[in-house]
Design a protein around this nucleic acid. Structure first.
Lengths: 336, 336
DNA sequence: ATGTATGATTTAAGCGCTTCCATGAAGTGA
DNA sequence: TCACTTCATGGAAGCGCTTAAATCATACAT
């Protein structure tokens, strides 16, 4: 590691540190001659500016924290790619915090903001409650959210209409002839679970189908949870021909359970998930699901948050609703 | 955001900033009475230390950079989980850098080290050449590598025996009766490609089978590459009954190609991959592959690197070879 | 009462930058 | 030539913290 600092470069180029700094930041005029001398001194000494000193002085860190509930879920990983690319393009680094599906961990990570370890934070998680997030924002923390809607003047967010998407899924299932459709929800306190359930209920009402509370089970948004929830459903012996899982991970669990129980998909059981997890198109039968423009969502949010960091105000709008798209594949089609 | 600083806390508690600092860091004795007063002042003022100032003063950042070639690949994501958990446990943050499979991006990210944005860096990529990495290490940069072997006194690394694993795969295929086995390699300049090819060759020699250069194709470690490479192989019309893909992503590409070309796996074509990508057990037929203790590898390396950061020397050993394990599933078995 | 050892606390010097302000040099018009 | 503007550069303060060294307070032995 090279340990030369600005003063060394300055001496070498026979200028003051102020001038070196100016050359580095292009903040104000430096004559071409001097600039050239400084630049070559920098190269010669292999100088690299010390980020901590810069941060301290400028009261910024040029990094964004990204709190994600589970990096292994490709849905999140793609959002993060969008965030990272955009942030890098705007000279920001990102600190990824994998909360491992635990709320306390997410809170813990958010304290990085209070330490000024990061200039702002992007939340990619269904776990934290709206109230908590608003509290942080009220304290003046720069926060942005992707994947859910929050109404707060300082919080940019980008989300899809979960209710609508969910309604579409259930409509599709009803059109395929299903009347008793089970719903696998995620964590009880996650916004997504709630909204997807709402869409499910609306679709039933639209079709004048009865709501049967026994057909609802919670699968905690993960594969094992989905598997177990489906088995509980079967154990009730109430009869149903389709399952709508609030995400693909749980749908995968349903697949496993069906394989174990020798229930054929889609012939005896139609399955639809949400998220268009990368795995969903590799399973057999290919899983019907709802796709979201994940990368774009991440990218857009990063841009907005950084905008806000720089002017302390939103150029235009603050909340963005993007369209999701039902992908009808083999797991819910051609039921004979 | 709270803007109180140490001096405010000090005034409130009627002590000097040095005392506040000592309370915060527990570095030397402070009387219980004073400590209590300081602590309550901190709470009262909602004080949080400024990380940049701390970093500047202590010449550390308590963050590790992690350069990964593609975060979407679950193999890498799991390694990263191991790194992150361990690092967090030791009070380090991690800056994840997704190089999007591009060498230049990786180099670019490594310059973070020179800026002292991070205290050390963990490389999770097959792309960068050994030479380049050694050069960095020679400059005194703290670097660690997971997933490949590098011989440098300052570089901890943890890896699996690619040659052995690869040899095992091919032995297995030969035992299943295959004699003409194609090999799909990754980037020509990746260490993994080279080592896996070596294992392939050794296994052929062990079994006194001829090496047929036409059976080798490069698939760049990704799905599309695997798909295309397999099609090129088929187009040559030289006859082979098994494919060993140097990673699961490429094996997935082979699956797609086989589906398109109506080639049944494993009946007409046995397929084996490497990595035990999460997807591999969901595809039909389930993909035979080689598993590595990914999480543990990441965790162990993070621990070693941080050790090194703190004592500037390795407590015990520096390189770790862990065992990988051939998982024989459906894609290479029961050929009739 | 005096000296000394021990422990608690403060003082003050930076860590390596950025940026405001002052200074100097060069150019312009009268 | 002189007064004034403009542009390039340097001086120096200070971002918020840590830590070595100095100081102060207390207790104890003599």
């Amino acid at each position: 590691m090279n340990d030369s600092k600005m003063i060394d470069v300055a001496r070498q180029a026979k200028v003051s540190v102020a001038t070196v700094s100016r050359v580095l930041n292009g903040s104000s005029a430096v004559s071409d001659k001097t600039k050239k001398r400084v630049l070559s001194a920098i190269k010669e000494m292999n100088y690299a500016p010390n980020a901590s000193a810069k941060n301290l002085r400028s009261l910024k860190t040029m990094t964004l924290g990204v709190v994600v509930s589970d990096i292994l879920v490709s849905y999140y990983a793609e959002i993060i790619k969008g965030i990272e690319n955009t942030a890098n393009g705007l000279n920001y680094n990102i600190l990824i915090c994998d909360a491992q599906n635990r709320k306390e961990k997410e809170r813990e990570y958010m304290s990085l903001l209070l330490n000024r370890t990061v200039d702002g934070m992007i939340l990619v998680t269904p776990l934290l409650g709206n109230e908590e997030i608003r509290d942080f924002a009220d304290m003046g923390c720069a926060i942005g959210i992707v994947g859910r809607y929050i109404d707060h003047p300082n919080v940019p967010c980008i989300y899809t209409d979960n209710v609508k998407a969910s309604r579409e899924v259930v409509h599709h299932l009803i059109e395929e002839g299903h009347e008793r459709i089970a719903f696998l929800s995620g964590y009880a306190d996650a916004v997504d679970s709630y909204e997807r359930l709402e869409g499910y209920l609306k679709a039933l009402r639209d079709a004048r189908l009865p709501f049967i509370p026994e057909l609802i089970e919670n699968g905690n948004f993960n594969e094992i949870g989905g598997n177990e929830a489906f088995r509980r459903l079967m154990a009730k012996d109430i009869g149903f021909t389709a399952v709508f899982a609030a995400n693909d991970e749980m749908a995968l669990g349903v697949y496993e359970a069906c394989k174990a129980l020798s229930i054929e998909i889609p012939a005896r059981m139609a399955v639809v998930g949400v998220d268009n997890n990368r795995i969903s198109k590799y399973v057999t039968p290919r899983l019907s699901t709802v796709d979201q423009p994940k990368y774009t969502m991440g990218a857009l949010l990063a841009e907005k948050l950084i905008d806000q960091l720089n002017d302390n105000a939103f150029a235009d709008k603050r909340t963005f609703k993007v369209d999701s798209k039902l992908l009808i594949r083999d797991s819910s089609r051609n039921r004979k």
